[in-house]
């Protein structure tokens, strides 16, 4: 089974070190993947999905059409890409007449989407196709003793009948099990299943309110866990959980937890150099990396 690696916009633009970690780890795990030549923005919810349905769906369908030409499905780490593409696909396939209408638009660019190609999320792929056991066998340096807090991407949870792959959307656990496969201990806490608050327009329209929303999460992490690092698998969660800590810190109290994408941590456990797979962040990660990877 071959997959098309759908990078989205944020990862290659802002965190290509995560892209590097994904390419390295998937190769080592024998996941066969190719680039999606000529892909475009998924589209993100603040763009065409906020403007016009045909523009939104024709963009989803363009990306699927490229995958379909190659006879493959797509994989992505970005929660928004995943959700936009999954929700778009459901509308394209389930709403009477929609696929035909959109294919008329696509035909102008010599593209066609039959409805075969689909989108999968990185967590789902790693859990269901590779599995925690093979991950455990593939790592060189386990994270024994490390205490990790997991951020589950909302876009991979709700609405569960369209995007879900965890057994319970309310209490997802696949990302936790993947982190445990690295030998780490995952800490639970009261706001574990809450949104990071970083996506969409919330922070743009209401910076102070959005920050206090996320600060509650960080206060719960501080009070209820011995968290040493936070792990996500969505570019928005990862970038926001990292960036927001400076914004919620005060003179009296600084929040400074290292934040990683799952594939970054996996790549470090496989022995890849941090200068390649974990290079870009706001909060320093050196001490954590030094402690566990020397």
């Amino acid at each position: 089974m071959q997959y098309g690696l759908f990078l989205g916009c944020n990862m290659p633009a802002h965190r290509p070190d995560i892209e590097r970690s994904i390419r390295a780890t998937l190769t080592d795990l024998h996941v066969d993947f190719v680039d999606v030549d000529g892909y475009v923005c998924c589209p993100g919810f603040g763009t065409f999905p906020a403007v016009d349905q045909d523009a939104q769906l024709v963009t989803n369908a363009w990306n699927y059409a490229i995958a379909e030409e190659k006879g493959i499905d797509l994989i992505t780490q970005c929660g928004s890409c995943y959700s936009s593409m999954k929700l778009g696909r459901a509308t394209l396939l389930e709403k009477e007449g929609t696929k035909d209408r959109i294919n008329k638009l696509l035909a102008v660019g010599d593209k066609k989407y039959e409805g075969r190609a689909n989108m999968r999320h990185m967590i789902d792929l790693l859990y269901s196709e590779v599995g925690p056991e093979r991950i455990r066998e593939a790592i060189k340096t386990p994270l024994t003793g490390a205490r990790i807090v997991v951020q589950y991407p909302c876009h991979t949870r709700f609405p569960s009948e369209l995007v879900g792959f965890d057994e319970s959307s309310g209490r997802p656990d696949r990302l936790r099990k993947l982190v445990e496969a690295l030998g780490a201990t995952v800490e639970t806490y009261s706001l574990e299943y809450g949104c990071c608050g970083g996506s969409g327009g919330f922070h743009k329209t209401s910076a102070a309110e959005a920050e206090s929303f996320t600060k509650r999460k960080y206060e719960a992490i501080r009070d209820e866990t011995e968290c040493e690092a936070i792990v996500g698998s969505c570019i928005t969660c990862v970038m926001y959980m990292d960036r927001v800590q400076k914004l919620i810190s005060t003179e009296e109290e600084k929040f400074s937890y290292p934040v990683f994408d799952y594939n970054q941590l996996l790549a470090l456990c496989m022995g890849y150099p941090p200068s390649q797979v974990a290079r870009i962040s706001v909060e320093p990660r050196e001490a954590f990396i030094q402690k566990y990877f020397g």
């Binding site: 949104c195 969409g200 959005a210």
Partner: peptide, 15 residues
């Protein structure tokens, strides 16, 4: 109404 533009797109409400 400007409020729909503050949605964080978490899709919880749908669930």
């Amino acid at each position: 109404d400007d409020t729909p533009w503050s949605c964080v797109t978490c899709t919880r409400c749908e669930e």
